[in-house]
Design a protein around this nucleic acid. Structure first.
Lengths: 331, 331
DNA sequence: CTGTTAGCGCCTTCAT
DNA sequence: ATGAAGGCGCTAACAG
């Protein structure tokens, strides 16, 4: 069975390619029910599938969504991606995948390549808060995830960072913690980290820059250990609580505490952003804020696809996806 | 700056499109150094980027690798994907992503769509051991991951399942366990699960079908709990060990044991396939077999891309990626 | 209702 | 060393 083309179908059925094309595109009003059926049958019999490449050339629309993620290895990200994929599939769009591996220049490369590959739209899960490349994307055909620029230029889907952390940390405070600390990757200019920190500050009333502790994703943790040691010593006798900004940070904290011979919820208390499967089997289980990563994926795709066919230029929106709390026994 | 085409460049430089095309494709021998330079400059100045869609149409090669994964949410899978992406990028290929969400019919759909979208090649991380759709893929332009059919028809990249489990379980046995059990998702016809089970059998000498315990990924675990209870009762007084076939199964086991009020390594011992970040912070930390998921990704892409340009039909190979052991304190 | 006919942007003989 | 021209498979006016 050779590769069929629209021409073959047209010839076999005895109509012109235009008619077949119209059929393919749902312009059924433009032909008799009889030819409709003949074409339908022929397509079925020959297993004909139109070439999306050729169609892309002709329509200048590849029906492809380019996705740039910061780090696909992050459980949050892979769940988001699965949401994006499902939603795109539902609307007949394909997904061109790129991954920055947390490297900003890699990301720049990825995004500009996607742009040069005539994708219909772009979904970006940014590595950092800002990058020159972000200026090159337009609200017409892009949405960003998780990054809340000071001035939103492009539709952005984020999780409820500030408020959920504020509520959660307040709850910790209610448990009579004397002092609290926010643990995070280096804040840099990553809005997610800042928003959660600000929620923390709002709940505690601390001033910005204090009660903040950072770990690096990679390399040695001796510095972190020192800071932690200092904190625990400084607050000897007090009830001290920690809020970690995601699961991986939590792992760093727990490992460090373990190293220092300290145990929660006795020597300290913990709560975390992000709900990962393993958190529930720790003893005690970790109380956390659960974000709906899948929904973030589907929402962002939905918004993007909507504006792709709406064709009307809207002003950029900020969509906040709600979270839920899982209170277990870690504080 | 309008969208440049090859024609524009040709006109601006004062040559024909053929010459520009030759330049673009590295056929530099076909033109004078002078024109080479002129073209190069013009391309740079105008920011011209050839349309991959048009090129795809003309060459009938989209320079795109279609990827079908069983479940992107699985940490193994997302790491594999990152490997695939890096390797493909290195060779100028793009990655079209699809995800089956562990659903076989969804997968069938994904793969056949990819096939109809003139991808240059296919990488498949299969949902199950077999599916009619797998018959439609050819070794010419595809590689499979992690699935070892009885008869390999397509290059397949797997991790060292059998031997590494055999070695690891032997090591557990050396710790004087009286009896051991293999815990897994339902074996079905998934080669990975079977191979690990067979390695387990080889180490223990048990007969197939015994000392095997399955959990379902979803739904209630009461059945599992009952089986576990029976096992622990039946082996009262004995030193009993468990080997879980991956991290998620391990979580199920630990949760169940916790529910039964049992603790490792006192009441039982555990070891697992797969090395996940949280395993090292459990107390005691989990001893496990660490597979190189990233390498599996890069290898499979490498093999695929190699044969895509080698153009010589080779016979299907089975590539086994080695593992390493992390012995910690869980048994 | 249906057919004709230009393109879409690039590649590729075949001439020159 | 360079150019002219046809074609890849499909779409979209415009005719009829």
């Amino acid at each position: 069975m050779e590769k069929m083309t629209i021409k073959d179908i047209a010839k076999l059925v005895g109509v012109s390619t235009a008619t077949v094309s119209n059929y393919l595109n749902g312009n059924l009003s433009k032909m008799s029910p009889a030819t409709q059926k003949k074409i339908a049958d022929m397509i079925r019999n020959t297993n004909y599938v139109p070439s999306s490449v050729a169609r892309g050339l002709a329509t200048n629309d590849s029906k492809t969504i380019g996705v740039s993620v910061a780090d696909i290895t992050n459980p949050f990200t892979s769940t988001v991606l699965s949401g994006i994929y499902e939603e795109c599939g539902k609307h007949g769009y394909r997904v061109l995948f790129t991954n920055a591996s947390s490297d900003a220049s890699h990301e720049t490369d990825n995004i500009s390549k996607l742009q040069n590959q005539q994708v219909s739209g772009l979904i970006i899960d940014p590595v950092e808060g800002d990058s020159p490349i972000y200026k090159t994307i337009t609200n017409r055909n892009a949405v960003m995830i998780d990054r809340q620029a000071k001035q939103i230029k492009v539709d952005t889907v984020v999780t409820d960072n500030f408020d959920s952390v504020k509520r959660f940390v307040s709850k910790m405070l209610d448990e009579a913690y004397d002092v609290m600390y926010y643990v995070s990757w280096p804040l840099k200019n990553v809005s997610t980290r800042w928003n959660r920190y600000n929620g923390f500050l709002a709940a505690t009333g601390y001033v910005s820059g204090t009660h903040y502790l950072s770990v690096h994703n990679t390399g040695d943790t001796s510095e972190f250990l020192d800071e932690l040691t200092a904190i625990m010593k400084e607050n000897a006798g007090k009830k001290v609580g920690f809020f970690t900004m995601n699961g991986r940070v939590l792992i760093r904290l727990l490992a460090a505490m373990e190293f220092l011979g300290l145990q929660y919820p006795i020597d300290y208390g913990v709560g975390s952003y992000e709900d990962l499967d393993w958190m529930s089997i720790l003893k005690p289980a970790i109380s956390c804020i659960s974000q709906d990563s899948y929904a973030i994926g589907t929402m962002s795709a939905q918004i993007l696809l909507n504006k792709l066919d709406a064709k009307s230029e809207m002003e950029p929106r900020l969509i906040e996806v709600p979270t839920s709390e899982k209170i277990r026994g870690s504080f």
